[in-house]
């Protein structure tokens, strides 16, 4: 439905390309909803699930829709501390999304720079970076999280640090693999012949062409980061239990799975699934749209 006569601005064009896929639009709508919930959690939640004064252990493990002793109704039930699951999910979404996105961005930035530099310069720089990567990849996340917990204590920021530490090496290796191939191609050679600055060659020419596989890995890794945070919680190394993320809610509810109290981990699981699905649907389309070579 674009006006034929006008010259298209880049944004208009971008939007037209993006909206070609209906699935991506659904994803975008979902993502908008999820982000809105995350931002507005304090306003729209029936309860502040992080304020212990508002919880009552006597209301614990109520089934969805069951009325509590005080007459309140919890539509998605309560967990073992009497926390309203709906509010818990809203707040948890906020934390999980924040942790997943923040850690991915930081890890991506670090991994990207080191990976590109290693591939571009080669030689001892490559050796140094790649051997650090070897060490990093072999260092288990739990051990890192445990050391951070012992030294720095508990908190959202520490979890992000742990996740970044675990993940950057992964990106570094992925970027390097693409860059190694790209580096040998004519356009890089051409850029170099033109005596462009090295930083310019690396970031303006090498980087954009290494991005496609990286974006795949990154969007999957946002999900992975959220799941990893859940796993750390499952191992007792995650966030403070009074301020549960989605992952912590799931791992708390995990132990009730066999006993039929499904809602404690089922609903946060659904929320996580929807969130990750939305991120990936949008990212899939973004990748296709932004990739210069895929433009028809």
């Amino acid at each position: 439905m674009t006006e034929p006569a006008r010259v298209e601005g880049p944004w208009v064009r971008f939007w037209r390309d993006f909206s070609e896929s209906r699935l991506a639009l659904v994803g975008l709508a979902l993502l908008a909803l999820v982000v809105a919930i995350a931002i507005l959690a304090p306003v729209i939640s029936p309860q502040n699930p992080y304020d212990l004064a508002q919880l009552d252990v006597m209301d614990s493990k109520l089934a969805p829709g069951e009325a509590s002793g005080t007459g309140k109704t919890y539509w998605l039930g309560t967990d073992d501390q009497g926390r309203d699951m709906l509010s818990g999910i809203f707040y948890g979404l906020r934390i999980s999304l924040g942790v997943g996105v923040a850690s991915t961005i930081f890890a991506l930035a670090i991994g990207l720079v080191l990976g590109l530099v290693a591939a571009y310069f080669g030689g001892w720089v490559d050796t140094l970076v790649m051997r650090i990567v070897d060490i990093q990849l072999s260092f288990p996340a739990i051990l890192i999280a445990l050391v951070l917990l012992a030294v720095l204590g508990q908190g959202v920021d520490k979890i992000v640090v742990a996740l970044v530490t675990v993940q950057w090496a992964y990106y570094a290796r992925t970027v390097r693999s693409s860059a190694l191939v790209e580096r040998q191609k004519e356009y890089i050679e051409a850029a170099r012949v033109l005596a462009l600055g090295q930083a310019r060659v690396v970031f303006r020419h090498l980087l954009p062409n290494c991005l496609p596989p990286l974006i795949v890995v990154a969007t999957v890794q946002v999900a992975h980061a959220i799941a990893l945070e859940a796993t750390l919680s499952f191992l007792g190394l995650g966030l403070p239990i009074t301020e549960p993320s989605l992952g912590l809610l799931i791992s708390n509810g995990f132990q009730y799975l066999l006993s039929g109290k499904y809602w404690i981990s089922f609903y946060p699981g659904i929320a996580l699934l929807v969130t990750i699905m939305a991120i990936n649907l949008v990212a899939d389309q973004l990748r296709d749209v932004l990739n210069p070579r895929l433009r028809k």
Binding site: A230, I250, S251, L257, L273, I276, M277, N280, L281
Partner: peptide, 24 residues
């Protein structure tokens, strides 16, 4: 599209949760 949407399921849920559901 089905394959892509299905593949999202594979990494959205934590391993421990999927494992226990399989056992169940």
């Amino acid at each position: 599209r089905g394959i892509m949407a299905g593949s999202i399921m594979g990494f959205s849920l934590p391993t421990f949760w999927v494992g226990l559901v399989l056992i169940m």
